[in-house]
Amino acid sequence: MAVISSLLMIGADKSAEIEAQSIKVCNMLALVAIPVIAVNLLFQYSIVDMSAQLSFTFWLIVASLFGVTIGFNAICLHDLAKVWVISVFSLYVTFTCLFLYGIETGFCWLLLLAYPIGFLFWPEKNSTLRFSLFCITTLFFALNMVVEAKPLFTLDQSQQYLMNISVFFTSIVIQILASKQFIDGMMRYKSRLEVQANMDSLTGIYNRNFFEDELQTKLREKGTDQYHSLLILDIDYFKEINDNYGHAAGDDALREIVRRVNSAMPTEGLFGRFGGDEFCLFWLSSSSTQAMRVAQHVISAVNLPKETQVRDFHVRVSAGMTTDSKRRNLVRLFNAADNALYFAKRNGRGQLAIEQDGHLDLVKTRLEVVDTPFVSVQ
Score class of each variant (00 low, 15 high):
D13A: 13
Q21I: 13
N27M: 00
P35K: 04
S46C: 10
I47P: 04
A52P: 14
F56E: 07
V62E: 09
L65R: 03
I70C: 09
I70T: 15
G71E: 02
A74T: 06
C76M: 12
L80G: 09
W84L: 06
W84C: 04
V85W: 01
I86Y: 01
F95R: 07
T96Y: 12
C97F: 01
L98W: 02
G102H: 02
C108P: 07
L111V: 06
L112P: 02
L113E: 05
L113I: 12
L113S: 05
P116A: 04
G118A: 06
K125W: 14
S127F: 02
L133T: 12
N144T: 05
N144R: 03
V146W: 09
A149D: 05
K150H: 12
L152M: 14
M163L: 13
F169I: 13
T170D: 09
I172N: 07
V173F: 09
Q175T: 15
K180T: 13
I183N: 09
M186A: 10
M186T: 12
M187A: 13
Y189I: 12
Y189N: 15
A197C: 06
A197H: 04
S201L: 11
G204H: 00
Y206P: 07
N209H: 11
F211T: 05
Q216A: 14
K218H: 14
T224Q: 11
H228G: 10
L231K: 01
D234H: 03
I241C: 03
N244M: 08
D252V: 04
D252H: 06
R259K: 12
G272S: 06
G275Q: 02
G276Q: 01
E278C: 03
F279W: 00
F279R: 00
S288I: 11
R293F: 11
V294W: 07
Q309H: 11
Q309K: 12
R311L: 08
A319S: 08
G320D: 06
S325Y: 10
R328A: 10
N329A: 01
F334T: 10
N335K: 09
A336P: 07
D338F: 01
N339D: 14
R349E: 01
R349K: 14
Q351Y: 04
I354P: 05
G358N: 03
D361M: 12
R366W: 08
L367F: 05
P373E: 00
P373H: 06
F374P: 04
